[in-house]
Computed example of a mutant assay.
Amino acid sequence: MPFRVLLVLLMLPILSVQACSAPPTPVIASDHPLAGRIWQPATGRFLSVDELETRLASAQVVMLGETHDNPDHHALQAWAVRTLAAAGKKPQVAFEMIDRDRQADLDEAVHDLDGLGEALRWKERGWPDWPLYRPIAEAALAAGGTLSAANLPADVTRQIARRVEPAEQAARLGLNAPLPEAIAAALADEIRSSHCNMMPDSAIPGMVRVQRARDAEMAETVAALAQRPGPGPVVLIAGAGHARTDRGVPERLRQIAPGLTVFSLGLIETDAAVTDPAAEAPPFDAVWFTGRAEREDPCAQLMRQMKKKSDAAGK
């Protein structure tokens, strides 16, 4: 066999891994100076894609924090799972978007990825189109990995919001211990602002409890998956707020499974007014900046939803 042909054949595995590692071309065009760059807050420098891949592959738990309706975030999540697969991993992917009482439905429908969203009532539950998430699931299964539900069941969420959950449930989720004052205040402020300051003050404590409970439930799911022999790492697909390292799932994991190596990647939309990546000290192990998705004014949308509920209650 000619030497050149032999050399090409020997390089094919390397070339295929490099092809898997190439990040997807963004759907959302952006000329923001941070778009497409990866910032590491701890060192105050930008990472290369290769450096990020190394950090992803060395973690037992990878958190991929998204903005739910940004297609580039889901494309990067699928890329991250494929990158882990190219490194010889078998990612166990857990989804915030699937309540844990739907695991049996997930297991039953997992062989039909096109119909999985419908089987899980994905659209009915208010999540963006299932086809945005499908490549993530496909990448995990193609690598010999697994898919898991991670979030609190809806009935438990309602109990927690009303503070009528069983005492053992509150203890399991860490709700019997108060948050540090600064963290509690920051979380309450974030919830107020994310709801356009339209929620009554009386509703905020319950919403804080629900956020804490969801973080704890996802952390418990992740910890249990990480203890399974064989496949790994565990990859959590969740909103960026749940993937924050100062609170959220990483903080709860430090309490219940302190030995786990966790890497949290925040997929963060650029802000036209912010060009310094360290300006807001983003609370992630790394931040991948992306373009900002076009969307309806969320406050106008929330106002319509609240009016609809009010009208329905008045009938």
Rank of each mutant, 00 (worst) to 15 (best):
A185L: 06
A143E: 03
Q18N: 08
A85V: 05
D114V: 07
Q103C: 03
F3V: 08
R55L: 15
A171V: 04
G232M: 05
A313H: 08
P283F: 08
S16T: 09
L34P: 14
P71E: 10
A22L: 14
A119C: 06
E96M: 11
R125A: 10
G44R: 13
A139F: 06
L34N: 13
R254C: 02
L116S: 05
V62H: 13
P26T: 10
Q18D: 05
T146A: 04
P231D: 08
A226T: 05
Q40N: 09
D114K: 08
L52Q: 14
E296Q: 15
A150W: 06
D99G: 04
E296W: 11
M306R: 12
P71C: 10
P298W: 15
V287G: 06
M63H: 15
E251S: 06
A203W: 04
D271W: 03
P166M: 03
D246P: 02
P153K: 01
T245D: 08
A184K: 00
A170I: 00
A272I: 02
Q305R: 14
T261G: 05
E269Q: 12
S264C: 10
V274Y: 11
L260T: 07
A177H: 14
M1D: 07
A59E: 10
D271L: 11
K315L: 08
M97R: 10
V274M: 12
D271E: 13
D201K: 03
G232A: 04
L6M: 11
L6V: 10
K307I: 09
A19E: 14
E108N: 08
